[in-house]
Amino acid sequence: GPMASDKRPRTAFTAEQLQRLKAEFQTNRYLTEQRRQSLAQELGLNESQIKIWFQNKRAK
């Protein structure tokens, strides 16, 4: 629909990254900035991508 703007492409996470994020989520529903930074480095992701993933996951 018209609401779907092309400005922010959805990140396609790899299965491996998703597995890691899910495991982290089961341990911590809320990430500290430090955890998020190390996860971002570990997974080669953007911190904001991880932050948003957690927000979306909590919203469900």
Rank of each mutant, 00 (worst) to 15 (best):
Q26C: 11
G1V: 07
Q34C: 06
T27P: 01
K60M: 10
A15L: 10
S48W: 14
E24G: 01
R10C: 15
K51M: 05
S38F: 11
P9W: 06
G44A: 07
A15G: 07
N46E: 15
G1N: 11
Q34V: 14
F54C: 01
G1D: 12
K57N: 08
Q37G: 09
R8E: 10
Q19A: 14
E24V: 06
L43F: 04
F25N: 00
Q19G: 09
K7M: 06
L39C: 01
S5K: 04
L45S: 03
D6S: 09
E47G: 07
A40M: 03
N28H: 09
Q55S: 14
R58P: 02
F13S: 02
T32E: 04
A23G: 06
S48T: 13
A4G: 14
Q17V: 06
Q49I: 13
R35Q: 13
N56Q: 11
R35M: 10
K57L: 06
A59G: 07
A4M: 15
L18S: 04
K7C: 15
D6M: 03
A59W: 14
I52S: 06
A4F: 09
E24Q: 02
L21T: 00
R8I: 10
S48Y: 13
M3R: 03
W53M: 01
T14P: 01
T32R: 04
K51E: 07
N46V: 09
R35D: 05
P9T: 03
F25I: 02
E42Q: 07
A15F: 11
L43E: 00
A23P: 00
T27A: 12
Q26I: 13
L39F: 03
M3W: 02
D6N: 10
L45K: 03
L31H: 02
S5T: 09
L43A: 01
Q19D: 10
N56G: 05
Q19T: 12
Q17T: 05
Q17R: 02
I52H: 14
Q37S: 11
R29V: 06
L45G: 01
R20F: 04
P9C: 12
R8T: 11
T11H: 15
R8L: 11
Y30M: 07
L39G: 00
Q17E: 02
L31K: 01
L45C: 07
L43D: 00
E42V: 04
L18A: 05
L21G: 00
F13Y: 08
R58C: 06
L21F: 02
W53R: 00
N46W: 06
L31W: 03
E42K: 03
F13C: 03
G44P: 00
W53A: 02
G44N: 13
T32Y: 02
A15M: 12
N28I: 03
T27Y: 07
Q19M: 15
T27K: 13
R35E: 13
L31Y: 01
Y30A: 04
Q41L: 14
N28A: 05
A59M: 10
Q19K: 11
R29Q: 06
Q26P: 01
E24M: 03
N46M: 09
Q37A: 12
Q26V: 06
Q41R: 11
Q55N: 07
D6Q: 06
F54S: 00
A4Y: 11
G44S: 08
R58A: 08
R10I: 15
I52C: 06
K7P: 08
R58S: 06
S5R: 01
G44M: 07
L45H: 02
M3I: 14
K7L: 07
T14C: 03
L43N: 01
A40P: 00
R8P: 15
N46G: 09
A23H: 09
F54M: 03
Q26A: 13
L31R: 01
F13I: 06
T11N: 10
N28W: 04
R35C: 04
T32K: 05
Q34W: 08
E42C: 04
R36V: 10
F25E: 01
K60D: 04
T14H: 03
R8M: 05
K7F: 13
L39P: 00
K7N: 13
W53D: 00
R29F: 05
S38M: 14
Q41W: 09
T14Y: 02
P9G: 06
L21A: 00
L31G: 01
L21R: 00
G1M: 07
T11D: 15
L18V: 10
Q49H: 05
K22A: 09
A15S: 11
E33V: 11
K7R: 14
R20G: 05
A40F: 01
E16K: 14
A23L: 09
W53E: 00
A23R: 09
S5G: 12
M3H: 13
A40R: 02
Q41K: 08
A4L: 11
A12E: 15
K7T: 15
R58L: 10
L21V: 01
L39R: 00
P2Y: 05
R29A: 11
N28R: 05
Q55T: 07
A59E: 07
Q37C: 08
R29W: 08
S5C: 13
Q17M: 05
K7A: 07
F13Q: 01
Q26T: 07
W53K: 00
R35T: 09
Q19W: 05
M3Q: 14
I52A: 13
L31S: 02
K7W: 06
K7V: 08
Q55W: 15
A59L: 10
A15H: 13
R36C: 06
Q37P: 02
P9F: 04
R8F: 11
K51V: 11
M3P: 14
I50N: 00
R36E: 08
L43Q: 01
M3V: 14
A59S: 07
S38Y: 11
P9N: 04
Q37R: 14
G44H: 09
A23I: 08
L45D: 00
P9A: 04
A23V: 09
N46D: 10
L31D: 08
S38V: 15
T14I: 02
E42R: 03
D6T: 08
W53F: 10
L31F: 03
K7Y: 06
L31A: 04
E47C: 04
L18F: 06
A23S: 10
E24C: 03
F54V: 02
A23T: 12
L18H: 07
R20H: 04
Q26K: 14
N28S: 12
K60C: 07
Y30W: 10
L43C: 05
Q17G: 02
T11W: 15
I50F: 01
E42Y: 03
R29N: 14
A12H: 15
E47N: 04
Y30P: 03
L21D: 00
K22W: 06
I52K: 15
K22S: 06
